[in-house]
Simulated assay, not measured.
Amino acid sequence: MNRLKFKITATTFLSDFSNAAIIFTFSLALIGKSAFWFSLLYGVYYFSSFIIHLIMGMFIDKKSPASLMIFSEIARFVLLLLAFVIVSMGSNQKEIYLFIICLIGLVEPIFHPAEMKVIFHYFSGRELSKIDSILELSDQSMMIFAPILITLIYKFKNIQGALLIILIILIISIIINFLLNKVTKIDIKTGNSDRDSFKELLSGYAYIVNKRKLLYSSSILGIVNIAFGIVTPLILPLLQVYKADATLLYLFVTTAESTGVIFGALFILTFNKTKRITNQYYPFLFISSSFLIVGMAQKSPVLIIICYFIIGGATSYFNVLNNLQFQKSSEEKMIGKVFAFKGMITVLGFTVGSLIGGFIITIVAVNTLFIAVGFVTLSFTLLILFLKKNKKF
């Protein structure tokens, strides 16, 4: 059993590495292109991810979770192999990356819900809190490690080298998942038809709309992700003014943000401050202020890196408060559907933000867009805090 649990944990780190590495590598491949293409890259990826989140509830409980994990990893391997072959033949067209990232967005989100079923089945209740911590550590540590490794390979080799290392990681993950598939035996739900499953999805959405606190938390979650969707694809274009140093600075900024998330989580665990501060708009205050400063500090890379460390910490705090609100406001029997909806809101918000950013960036400069997003979200946050203080909201 211990070997089985080790394999399950190993697949988490391998999958999280490829998740972080793919979008980072494709962003590097667009260096020199207009900022519009960076927004479009993220936009098509998150739009296709939103589509699969929308329908995933209709089949995720009807298939073997280990088989779904294998399917997700193999599909990504095939798509990246296709990209590797095309690029190796001398073609480096931006449309290729957009097409492949769109298809990856359709298969990548299947992995983790299936993995959670395996984890829930084989880990005891006492072990689940520990494995949750490991999952968070895996996600954030790979957000640091993957960009560092990909940047080094990209600097000394090229995009083909970066794609090759991801393909190797995916091969290892596929092998481990095949081994898991041989030993995992989990009952599959077969009772509901597709029509019944679709009705269940709609009932979950109706439940959230009719719960004021859930609707409130869903709304701010959507707003936060729209803001991130606008600016996140444009970090590298913002840094392209530094030319040869842009790739390295991009690495520092993304690493600073992930490090901030880890420090934020450690701060919460150490001081348990969520008991004192429960308003989700307070961390958003730091996020929006940092966006504003980043736009103003385009010629100060150190200040940008510091701001993204603050953004990471504030995001971690916001996520905890938002999760707690969703948990406390939901009945136990509805938790699964509520968090499926939460995931969909996150992806939809980022998709909408990316598309908005892609449109606006054709009109204004990148740093101006950062300033605008920071100003609008900061003004909105201060207004809501004022209304709440005066009990008008």
Rank of each mutant, 00 (worst) to 15 (best):
L238F: 06
V183E: 10
V338M: 07
K130R: 13
G43Y: 01
G191F: 03
A146M: 00
L163N: 02
T255F: 11
N2T: 08
V294W: 03
V209D: 08
I169V: 14
K189N: 12
E95T: 05
S39M: 03
L179S: 08
M116W: 05
Y216N: 09
S49A: 12
N19R: 15
G343N: 14
K62R: 15
M296V: 10
G343R: 14
K213C: 06
M344H: 07
L202K: 11
L221W: 05
F326R: 14
V231N: 02
S258N: 03
Q325V: 08
L387S: 07
A66R: 03
I166M: 04
S15M: 12
D139R: 15
F36I: 10
A372S: 12
F370M: 11
E95Y: 06
K213S: 09
I131P: 04
E127F: 04
K63V: 12
D196R: 15
M296Y: 14
L4R: 08
I304H: 04
R195H: 10
Y281G: 07
N181A: 11
S300F: 14
F267N: 04
K62C: 04
S34H: 02
V209Q: 08
M142T: 15
I153L: 04
M69P: 05
V231Q: 01
I305W: 05
G312F: 01
F386M: 14
K299F: 11
I119G: 01
G343Q: 12
L369Y: 02
F145E: 01
V320M: 05
S329G: 09
I188Y: 04
N177L: 11
G105H: 00
K117C: 00
G260R: 00
M56W: 06
F59V: 13
N177G: 10
K337A: 08
F59I: 14
Y317D: 09
Q327M: 11
F47P: 01
I60K: 03
I168M: 04
G191K: 12
E73P: 07
L221R: 11
S197T: 14
V107H: 01
V352G: 02
T11V: 13
K388E: 13
I60W: 06
I268Q: 07
I226T: 09
V107P: 00
N390Q: 13
Y122N: 06
A244W: 13
L80S: 05
T346M: 10
A20R: 15
T278Q: 13
Q240E: 15
D139G: 12
S18E: 03
N272T: 15
C102R: 00
E73S: 14
L128Q: 15
L266S: 05
G125H: 11
D132N: 14
G222F: 15
A10Y: 08
I262S: 00
L28H: 01
G295H: 06
G32Y: 01
S197F: 15
K157R: 14
L164D: 07
Q325R: 13
L387H: 04
I335C: 05
E332W: 09
A146G: 00
T377W: 06
